[in-house]
Design a binder for these strands. Structure first.
Length: 443
RNA sequence: GGCUAAGUGGCAGAGUGGUAAUGCAGCGGCCUGCAAAGCCGUCAACGCCGGUUCGAUUCCGACCUUAGCCUCCA
C-alpha cells in the first residue's frame, strides 16, 4: 500500500517514498508553551498523530519528533506580565499540553525535544552556518544572510520582491537585507539567556527546529516529512529550509505537509478577537474522543470552521459507532485494507469516517464486520472511554430501574418518568428495548 | 497591493467527463405508555460567464466572493 501526501513544496499530491527504505523520520512543529493549548494546537498535533499511526502501519521504523518551544519572546512577556517565573510557566503549560493531548488519545512522539535542552546543539548549528558563510555577525546578532540562499520562497511560492511589497517587514539596523533573519540575539533578560561565542543571548525563533531535527537524525541526513500549521509556511518553514540547507550538504526535507487553521465563526481564532477555544474548555464539556472525531471531520488541509454543529455531528457519529461496537464483547481485530487505503490518500479522514459509519451500520446485520470496525477505530485512535462504575452506583442505578419497572407495570407512568429523569441527571441513559431495559453512562 | 487556497442541498461535508455519498436538521410512517434508539420512505445543492467536448459540477480561462499568509501564531 502506498501513502500519498500533498507536498507543499510542489503543491501536488505525491507518493511518499522514505529516504532510507523502511525508515521514516517526521517532525511536526509543536506549541510554544506560554498559554493553555487551544483547539488549533490540537488539530496540528492530531494531523501529526494520524500520520504517525499510519506510518507505523506501513514502515518498520518511524521516528516522530514533536518539539516544545520553551524559549520565546511571548514566554518572557507572559512572565513579565504575570510575575510567574519563566520556567514555571513553561513547565505548567507543558504538563497541560501533554495531559490534554493524551486525553485526546495522541500517541507520545518518539522524541519531544525542548529548546532549553538544546542550546549547545543550536550553537553548533549556527557555527556550521557561519562556517559556510551563510550568516554574519552584526551588533551582537548572528543573522542569516539571504544573499547566500537563492532558493528562498520555494515553499511558500512567494517571489522575493513580494516580500518587500508588503512593506510590513521592519528594516532592522543590524540586517543587511530585510529578508535576513536572526539566528542568535543578545538577551538583556537575566532569566532567559545563555553564554555563546557571540555573547550572552538566546536563539532566534527558527533555528531551534532545524537544530533539534539535525541533532536527532544526524546533520547529514534528510528529514522525510515535516509538518505544521499552514500559518507557519512563511516565514518559519521557509527560513528553516534556508538554514537547514546551509548547515549541511544534504537536502533538508523531502515532504512538507501543512494543516489548515481552525476558524471560529469563520474567523481565525486569535487572542485579539477573543474567540480562542481552549482544549481544556471543550474536553471538560465533551468526551475528548468526540472532539478528536470532530477534528477529523474535515480534511486536514481545509480550514475547519468550529461550531456547535461540528461537535454535535461528531457526537452522533461517535454514538453510532459505539452502539455497534457494544453489540459484541469480543475484541478480535482484523486488518481492513480498504480503510487503510482511504487514509493513505493524503489522510482522507472525512472519507474514512464515512466508511466507518457505514461499516458500523452494516455490522448490525453482519457481526463479521466487527473485528474490522475495531481495528479501524484503533487505527485512528477512536477508543472507548472506560468508565469506572462503582458498585454503589451500579446498585443504585439498578435499584432505581427496578422501581421504575414496577411503576411501569402498574401503569404509573408519572413516577416512571420521574425516575428516568432522575437517572438522566446522574448521566445515566435508559433504553427500553424489546428484551428489557439497558442503561449506560452517557459519554 | 502581492502570494496561497477554497466556493456543492437549511447546516456540515465527500465525490465524479455522462446531473451527486454520508451525517445532522425537516417531513411521512413503523415501533413505544411516552421517550430514546432502530428501521422504512421522502424533500432539497454543484458561485457567475465563456471555452474545449457528443456531453462538465468535474478540464481550461476570466470574473465575483470567502479565508489564510505577507507582523507573533498550530
Amino acid at each position: 500500500m502506498n501513502l500519498h501526501i500533498y507536498n507543499t513544496l510542489t503543491n501536488k499530491k505525491e507518493q511518499f517514498l522514505p529516504h532510507t527504505e523502511n525508515k521514516v523520520s517526521m517532525y511536526v512543529c509543536g506549541p510554544t508553551v506560554y498559554s493553555a493549548p487551544h483547539i488549533g494546537n490540537a488539530r496540528a498535533a492530531l494531523v501529526g498523530d494520524l500520520f504517525y499511526r499510519l506510518l507505523q502501519k506501513l514502515y518498520e521504523e518511524v521516528i516522530y519528533i514533536r518539539n516544545l518551544t520553551d524559549v520565546d519572546d511571548k514566554i518572557i512577556l507572559e512572565s513579565e506580565k504575570t510575575g510567574v517565573p519563566i520556567n514555571i510557566i513553561t513547565q505548567d503549560v507543558t504538563k497541560m499540553y501533554q495531559n490534554e493531548m493524551s486525553k485526546l488519545n495522541m500517541l507520545e512522539p518518539t522524541f519531544e525535544p525542548k529548546v532549553t535542552d538544546n542550546i549547545n546543539n543550536i550553537i553548533s548549528t549556527i557555527e556550521k552556518i557561519l562556517n559556510n558563510k551563510s550568516a554574519y555577525i552584526s551588533e551582537n546578532h548572528v543573522v542569516f544572510d539571504m544573499d547566500s540562499f537563492k532558493d528562498y520562497g520555494s515553499l511558500s511560492k512567494k517571489v522575493s520582491d513580494d516580500l518587500i511589497d508588503g512593506a510590513r517587514v521592519k528594516p532592522e539596523t543590524y540586517k543587511k537585507n530585510p529578508k535576513d533573519f536572526v539566528l542568535w540575539k543578545p538577551s538583556v533578560n537575566q532569566n532567559c539567556g545563555w553564554d555563546s561565542p557571540w555573547g550572552y543571548g538566546r536563539p532566534g525563533w527558527h533555528i531551534e527546529c532545524t537544530s533539534m531535527i539535525k541533532s536527532i537524525i544526524g546533520n547529514e541526513q534528510t528529514l522525510d516529512i515535516h509538518g505544521g500549521g499552514n500559518d507557519l509556511i512563511f516565514p518559519h518553514h521557509e527560513n528553516e529550509i534556508a538554514q537547514g540547507t546551509s548547515c549541511a550538504s544534504a537536502k533538508y526535507c523531502n515532504y512538507w505537509f501543512h494543516n489548515g487553521i481552525v476558524l471560529v465563526d469563520k474567523k481565525k481564532m486569535s487572542k485579539s478577537l477573543g474567540n480562542v477555544i481552549l482544549v481544556s474548555d471543550i474536553i471538560n464539556a465533551t468526551n475528548p474522543i468526540v472532539i478528536r472525531l470532530a477534528l477529523m471531520s474535515s480534511h486536514y488541509r481545509q480550514p475547519l470552521n468550529w461550531t456547535n454543529d461540528t461537535v454535535n455531528n461528531a457526537k452522533n457519529i461517535y454514538e453510532k459507532i459505539v452502539t455497534s461496537l457494544d453489540a459484541d464483547s469480543s475484541d478480535v481485530r482484523e486488518d481492513d485494507n480498504d480503510f487503510l487505503e482511504l487514509l493513505c490518500d493524503d489522510l482522507n479522514t472525512p472519507n474514512a469516517i464515512q466508511y466507518l459509519v457505514k461499516q458500523a451500520k452494516d455490522s448490525k446485520n453482519n457481526k463479521n464486520l466487527l473485528p474490522k470496525l475495531r481495528y479501524n477505530c484503533d487505527l485512528i485512535g477512536l477508543k472507548r472511554n472506560s468508565y469506572k462504575i462503582s458498585v454503589e452506583l451500579k446498585n443504585k442505578v439498578e435499584h432505581l430501574i427496578s422501581q421504575r419497572e414496577t411503576a411501569r407495570q402498574n401503569k404509573d407512568y408519572a413516577s416512571a418518568d420521574q425516575i428516568r429523569n432522575m437517572l438522566a441527571s446522574m448521566n445515566v441513559d435508559l433504553k427500553d428495548g424489546p428484551s428489557g431495559v439497558t442503561w449506560k453512562i452517557k459519554d
